[in-house]
Structure formats: C-alpha cells, structure tokens
Amino acid sequence: MEMTPETMKILANGILLGASALGAGTAMIAGLGPGIGEGYCGGQAVAAIGRQPEASGAITRTMIIGDALAETTGLYALVIALLLLYANPLIGKLVQ
C-alpha cells in the first residue's frame, strides 16, 4: 500500500491515541498490589478476631486504616489512567 501524507497522518494519530489507551490499561496492572495487600490485611484481621473476639472493634479499625494505606499505590495508578483517558497531556501532539 502506498503511504500518502494523509494515511501517515491517520497512522501517527492512531498510534498516539491507541498507545494512550494501552498505557491507561497497563497502568491499572498496579491494581494487583493493593489486591494482594488488602487481602492479606483482611485475612490477618479475621485470624486475629478469631483468636481474640473481644478486641474486634480495635482490630477492625486498624484493618480499615491498613486497607486505606495499601490502596494508595492503586489509586496513584488510577489517577494516571484517568489522566490518560480524560485529560490526556499528549493530545496536543496530534498531527493536524
């Protein structure tokens, strides 16, 4: 197929937009970490409540804080993904 300037332009813009979408999806692989972290946190809390049911209030409170902290990296990834989807900084580089 012959490459006219028109097709090259479409190709360049397509690669830029497609790569942004792929980047948003790839960023969310970071969701693995918080998933493992929160699961571990919840599991340990259940074990602790099983051992000491009378301390369930304090354990639940500590678990929620631990969950919130484990979630932080996932939220950083989410912010990057949202930026790439809705406020893409690369959009100015599209070939006119």
């Binding site: 979630e71 939220l75 950083y76 989410l78």
Partner: peptide, 16 residues
C-alpha cells in the same frame, strides 16, 4: 498528597 488522591480517586472511580 496521598490523602487527597485517596478520596479523589475513590469518588472519581465510583463516578466513572
């Protein structure tokens, strides 16, 4: 920063 992004991220994720 983490405090702000945690609340923002959670609420925006729900919205999206």
């Amino acid at each position: 920063l983490a405090l702000a992004l945690r609340l923002f991220g959670n609420m925006t994720a729900g919205l999206v």
